[in-house]
């Protein structure tokens, strides 16, 4: 028990082993579809931002400082005359990179260490889990703050700092999935036919855990984007001029009264992304767990 995510109990359903019908179901799920409708255009815009006829994200323009949203600048401009839309798109790039990197790191380490712990049990399990317990003893933002203050700020340290808080949670999740009755049955069956351990793990145990892990990963990605924003606020995140959604919002909120758009526009985008990642995870969950489909 006690798997702590952003909202801990959200993860509790993961302990019920779902069937794995592949990922085809996504297209058939309403929430997942909505999520994709929001995410895909943002992703495309971000990917092709540099090909659009827009000024560069760092390019300043002293004649167009703090302009309201207009046709020319749909999100307005900031204090240095930079286009907020362009900066937001560049920020989305960075933020998504942070989100997905964290999710991938957490996923990889979580699967490997969690499977080892669950599968081998005994001393290995105890050793891994006591280290996990130590890391779980820190609230996640605290751990990130502590690490960033040691390693320094910047893209890579921030990703590592956030991921380190997530890895132990994924290890725990994966371990509990491996230890679930369904996996147990597989293990016992395979043992009776003397299958190799590697074959057993890669063919039967890990695939069974992928869907719930994906659910957790999309929540972790959304969470990472928000944690980066908090770190940026405390001056410990990704530093200007490289725009992350977090630092654009932080800088912009100082002008909330004079130029609301500087921080509100990227704020809306961050919300849209996080929200759709949550919908995506809900979609996966509902598709897998008929009990939740109501």
């Amino acid at each position: 028990m006690a798997i702590t995510f952003t909202t801990p109990a959200r993860a509790s359903f993961l302990l019920r082993m779902p069937k794995l019908p592949g990922l085809k179901f996504l297209a058939g799920n309403k929430k997942a579809r909505l999520a994709l409708i929001i995410l895909v255009p943002i992703l495309l815009l971000t990917a092709f931002a540099s090909y659009l006829p827009l000024q560069g994200p760092l390019q300043t323009n002293l004649r167009a400082m703090m302009q309201e949203p207009s046709f020319l600048h749909p999100f307005g401009t900031d204090r240095m005359g930079r286009d907020v839309l362009v900066r937001t798109l560049a920020g989305v790039q960075v933020s998504l990179f942070v989100g997905f990197s964290v999710a991938i790191i957490a996923l990889v380490f979580g699967v490997v260490l969690g499977t080892i712990a669950g599968f081998f049990g005994r001393t290995v399990d105890r050793a891994i889990m006591s280290v996990v317990d130590i890391f779980l003893a820190f609230p996640s933002l605290l751990l990130a703050i502590g690490l960033v203050s040691v390693v320094g700020t910047g893209l890579v340290p921030v990703i590592l700092a956030i991921a380190i808080a997530d890895v132990p949670r994924f290890i725990r999740l994966q371990r509990s999935l491996v230890l679930s009755p369904r996996s147990r049955a597989y293990i016992d069956a395979a043992r009776t036919v003397k299958a190799s351990q590697w074959w057993l793990m890669s063919r039967h145990i890990v695939p069974n855990t992928i869907a719930p892990l994906l659910v957790a990963a999309s929540i972790a990605a959304a969470n990472a984007i928000l944690v980066e924003a908090s770190l940026s606020f405390l001056g410990l995140g990704i530093m200007p001029p490289s725009p992350s959604l977090g630092n654009i919002i932080r800088d912009g909120q100082l002008y909330l009264q004079q130029a609301w758009w500087i921080s509100t526009m990227p704020g809306v985008v961050i919300l849209a992304i996080a929200l759709s990642l949550h919908f995506l995870s809900d979609g996966i969950r509902e598709a897998l767990d008929p009990r939740a489909r109501k």
Binding site: R79, M80, T153, G154, M239, P240, P241
Partner: peptide, 15 residues
């Protein structure tokens, strides 16, 4: 110092 990142002032200098 990375405490403020590249400041606005420095961005102009680079320009």
């Amino acid at each position: 110092t990375s405490a403020q990142g590249v400041t606005e002032f420095q961005q102009f200098e680079i320009d």
